[in-house]
Simulated scan of single mutants.
Amino acid sequence: MSSFTLHSPDIAADGTIDKRFEFDGFGCSGENKSPALQWSGAPAGTKSFAVSVYDPDAPTGSGFWHWMVVDIPASVTELKADAGAAGGARLPAGASHIRIDYGVSAFGGMCPPPGDKPHRYVFTVYALGVEKLELPPDPTAALAGFMINANLLGKAGFTAHYGRPAA
């Protein structure tokens, strides 16, 4: 049985996400900074990691990708706070952002419609059997997700919630 786990010192599993992680735009006014994430117990044979944050409750028909990082070296066991800053300078060497549903290659904070029931945000780390995913330049999060699952050895994650009051 695997003991692969993911946690955040900034966000409690099944807890409420702090407003500082909210997006800054589209009527939201957070700091748009990614939380710190830490993992341990990766499966044997792990050659790299990927991380994603996904909102399955977004009213899009397909959910909403808030963050995706690929090609994180196997020696890395955390992403520091604000690793999702645009440009990738805060990512571990070799890792890169994938373009998310805000249309940027960076972290995009939570911004559910006002008055919606709090959305679920699924934080996942994936252990992969390849050092680098074979992706074209500027892939979508869906394509990266396909390649992650094609090379998956194991995954760990947690869900947290965020909502905004009705206007």
Rank of each mutant, 00 (worst) to 15 (best):
S3P: 02
S3Q: 14
L6K: 02
S8V: 01
I11P: 00
T16V: 12
T16I: 14
I17A: 01
I17Y: 00
D18P: 01
R20K: 12
E22C: 04
F26Q: 09
F26S: 10
C28V: 03
G30T: 04
E31Y: 05
N32Q: 09
K33L: 13
S34G: 11
P35T: 05
L37E: 00
Q38A: 10
Q38H: 11
Q38N: 11
W39F: 06
S40E: 15
S40H: 12
G41P: 04
P43H: 03
A44D: 15
T46V: 03
S48T: 05
F49C: 04
A50S: 11
A50R: 01
V51K: 02
S52A: 10
V53S: 05
V53C: 11
Y54D: 02
D55V: 03
D55C: 13
A58F: 01
P59R: 11
G61T: 11
G63W: 04
G63P: 01
H66G: 11
W67Q: 11
M68F: 08
V69I: 14
V69S: 03
V70E: 03
I72V: 14
P73R: 14
P73T: 13
A74P: 00
G84Q: 07
A89M: 07
R90F: 07
G94Y: 06
G94L: 04
A95Q: 05
S96F: 00
H97R: 08
H97F: 06
I98N: 02
R99T: 15
R99L: 04
D101H: 08
V104P: 00
S105K: 14
G108Y: 04
M110Y: 08
M110A: 13
P112D: 08
P113D: 12
P113V: 12
P113S: 13
P113Y: 12
P114D: 14
G115W: 11
K117T: 15
P118G: 08
P118T: 12
Y121L: 14
V122M: 10
V122E: 14
F123N: 10
T124A: 10
T124V: 15
T124G: 04
Y126S: 12
Y126P: 02
A127G: 09
G129N: 15
V130K: 08
L133F: 08
L135S: 08
P137D: 15
P137M: 09
P139W: 05
G145W: 05
F146E: 15
F146G: 07
I148S: 02
N151G: 06
L152G: 01
L153P: 01
L153R: 13
G154W: 07
G154C: 06
K155E: 07
A156M: 05
G157N: 03
F158N: 02
F158C: 03
T159S: 05
T159E: 05
H161A: 06
H161M: 08
R164E: 05
A166Y: 01
A167S: 15
A167I: 11
